[in-house]
Nucleic acid binder design. Structure first.
Length: 709
DNA sequence: ACCTGATATCCGATC
DNA sequence: GATATCAGGT
């Protein structure tokens, strides 16, 4: 076994695999064989006789941990059973499921996903008449994201708003009230949101020394992947679990930290040697993924960052064509251009070797249409999830009621499907349900036979059926007429998805495990297209983390899209966009196509507006790419390489403005908008300014009065 | 009293 | 495409 390990790893990887005593920090650059290292380490530990159940592997997605366990099993020539692996959230849920009563939960706890939580916020807002009739009151989505950010970043609301959304400061008090009511609501109804999973786990570990001891002894070998994307509470949980023997390895790359919006902090990595003073630090810098030209371009993007990353990624794959910058006339024609390019590439590549990446989910819509027209199979990751579709949520709400009868949001979802029942009536029925005589409930049931029917069905299932699969099938049978009524146009498609859900439920024996998995892991769409083996990948950059393809396109590389409009608010966010772009580029092995359309179609104006290409594109030296311009007839032409001395001095100067100078800006005054925070300088003489109450504006410098420091 | 259907505005990534 | 509000129907 050991010979096999030695043969397949470089010296640093080998060091990481065999350092099993005490804390280890592995800084693993993009494509440096991080996954391989973890896989071999798992196999090595087992081979040395470590009990699989004492190993804990925390990863970013369950898919990642399953993949690693599978590969380690293959190395060992046996299945790998008993290793606990998964996300922090799933791990936390498993513990809380066992010990929830120690924290005062009355019933089985249910996990609220994002849209459930938003629904709760909306109800609370209405019930307490907060922000009533105020059209500019932050939307439930916004309210929730600040409540969540406040917890994840462990900041108070005021400082968070000052930094990220100064125009919401007047609502700070209302937001805090909403937060307070929201936290109470969840506790009363035995509901946990994603953040609660982590914070309640920490609470349990702090309050119950016995449980903490038990867990840290049981999990004597801990590995954490993607450590740069853990937040403060996750960092503390890791420290609690490490226990006395401290056999902990964390793996990460500070240059690939892309989740600070949910509170992730690179400080967990940077301070690891302070948290664990005797730790060993190992760097993996040889890149096995990309060719030299792609690596050159990626390294240059990183070198423009404010923070200095001590990265010297190198590769032995010197051959390769330069990345291409595509310049379609608009985001509309971009889709056709990409389709053409994909056709061209598919002479040498399988469709499954090609991916198109983008900043946010909606950016692929027009491409999806073009791909369908061209008959190209694709699978999309990120964006709308399987379990977020209305019909799936409807059905799952019924299952939740079987598991946790105090789940008010689920009642509302389920009961509102019946004619004549809305949120108000539902609330009253719910209240009555927990009263002794249930008078109101019984009376309403007499008038509404549908209500009576579903309550009886739920009672029956609660008492007589335990298999999630059978429960689900009963519910689907009950729900199908409602589905047809609700979606007369596209119910067949939705019905197929319900059948898929039932297939997914098949192997589960516990209802609560099934339900938590549905909210904590997004299941792969299964059995949908038999051709999936050979289909193109469309993905958000975030969802593409850790993956790689021979050929990669990144689209919509223009201001307001990538970097996203939200990110242009402050320098830290801008830095994160840069790392995100770096992550995107380093997904490519042999071909990298960067597309920066010259205009964007604006729906509400029904025309195309010219746009500035992304600052990250502008700062790339011309020697690092080939440029292809679309001309009016739809063809693309290689742009004549201009002599070096006359090009690109200006764009590079602009890059400077973004990455360095803008940090220094302070506040200014405007006659109409008042005092505002300067966000960026737009050459030659404009500023982007955030005015509380008015939002982000672009204004000529002449109309602004600068405030002295 | 409460539910349902039509119309203007906005749109980030994840567990 | 979703979310929020306003107006009308039972």
């Amino acid at each position: 076994m050991f010979e096999q390990i030695q043969e397949n790893l470089n010296p640093n990887q080998l060091d990481a695999v065999t350092s099993c005593q005490g804390p280890v920090l592995v800084i693993a650059g993009a494509g440096s064989g991080k996954t391989r290292t973890i896989v071999y380490r798992l196999a090595y530990l087992i081979d040395k006789g470590v009990d699989p159940s004492s190993i804990l592997l925390l990863t970013f997605t369950r898919k990642a941990s399953q993949e690693m366990l599978l590969r380690a099993g293959r190395l060992l020539g046996q299945g790998l059973h008993g290793v606990s692996g998964g996300t922090f959230h799933a791990f936390a849920y498993n513990i809380l499921r066992k010990y929830g009563s120690a924290l005062g939960f009355q019933s089985q706890i249910t996990i609220l996903d994002r849209s459930d939580a938003e629904e709760v916020i909306k109800q609370i807002k209405e019930a307490n008449e907060i922000g009533k009739k105020d059209r500019s009151f932050p939307k439930k989505n916004t309210v929730l994201s600040f409540i969540s950010k406040m917890r994840n970043k462990e900041l108070n609301l005021e400082s968070l708003l000052e930094k990220e959304a100064a125009h919401l400061l007047p609502y700070a008090e209302d937001l805090l009230t909403l937060d307070d009511l929201y936290q109470k609501f969840k506790f009363e109804h035995n509901l946990l949101d994603y953040d609660d999973l982590l914070f309640y786990l920490e609470k349990l570990l702090l309050e119950r020394e016995d449980i903490k001891q038990h867990l840290s002894r049981k999990q004597s070998h801990i590995m954490v992947d993607e450590y740069q994307d853990t937040n403060l509470v996750q960092g503390r949980i890791v420290r609690h679990l490490a226990g006395e023997d401290n056999n902990i390895m964390v793996v990460g790359d500070d240059a690939q930290s892309i989740y600070s919006f949910r509170g992730a902090t690179v400080n967990n990595i940077l301070n690891f040697n302070k948290d664990f003073p005797d730790c060993k630090i190992i760097k993996l810098e040889q890149n096995y993924r990309s060719n030299q030209p792609i690596l050159d371009l990626s390294n240059q993007i990183l070198s423009g960052a404010k923070a200095k990353y001590n990265k010297k990624l190198f590769t032995t794959i010197k051959q390769g064509t330069k990345p291409e910058i595509l310049r379609p006339l608009s985001d509309q024609t971009q889709s056709n251009l990409i389709v053409d390019k994909i056709m061209e590439l598919s002479r040498n590549y399988q469709l499954s070797d090609i991916a198109v990446l983008f900043r946010s989910g909606f950016q692929s819509y027009s491409l999806e249409v073009a791909l369908n027209r061209a008959g190209i199979q694709f699978t999309k990751y990120g964006g709308q999830r399987f379990t977020e579709a209305a019909h799936i949520k409807d059905v799952l709400a019924h299952l939740r009621l079987i598991q946790n009868p105090t789940d008010l949001p689920a009642w509302q979802r389920a009961i509102s499907l019946l004619p004549g029942i809305g949120p108000k009536l539902c609330q009253r029925l719910y209240n009555s349900m927990f009263q002794e005589d249930k008078q109101y409930l019984n009376k309403t049931c007499k008038n509404k036979p549908e209500l009576n029917r579903i309550l009886e069905l739920l009672d029956y299932l609660r008492q007589n059926v335990s298999s999630p699969f059978y429960i689900l099938n009963w519910i689907i049978e009950y729900y199908t007429p409602i589905l047809k009524e609700k979606y007369p146009d596209d119910y067949p498609k939705r019905q197929t998805e319900l059948e898929q859900l039932s297939q997914i439920a098949g192997p589960y024996s516990d209802l609560d495990v099934f339900l938590s998995d549905m909210s904590l892991e997004n299941p792969e769409q299964i059995g949908n297209d038999p051709d999936k083996e050979n289909s193109l990948t469309l993905s958000t950059v975030h969802s593409a983390k850790g993956l790689e393809w021979p050929a990669v396109f990144i689209i919509d590389l223009v201001e307001e899209r990538f970097p996203s409009r939200h990110a242009m608010l402050d320098a830290d966010n801008m830095e994160e966009e840069r790392r995100l772009f770096y992550v995107a580029c380093t997904r490519a092995q042999e071909y990298l196509g960067l597309s920066a359309p010259e205009s964007l179609y604006k729906k509400y104006q029904n025309r195309c507006e010219p746009v500035i290409s992304s600052p990250f594109i502008q700062e790339i030296s011309p020697g690092y790419y080939q440029e292809l311009k679309e001309n009016y007839s739809g063809r693309v032409e290689k742009k004549q390489a201009a002599p070096l001395n006359e090009t690109h001095t200006q764009p590079e100067a602009k890059g400077e403005d973004y990455s360095r100078e803008k940090m220094e800006y302070g506040f200014c005054r405007h006659k109409i908008f008042g005092r505002g925070k300067i966000v960026s300088f737009i050459p030659p003489n404009k500023f982007q300014v955030n005015f509380p109450g008015f939002g982000l504006k672009v204004i000529l410098g002449d109309y602004l009065q600068m405030e002295a420091e």
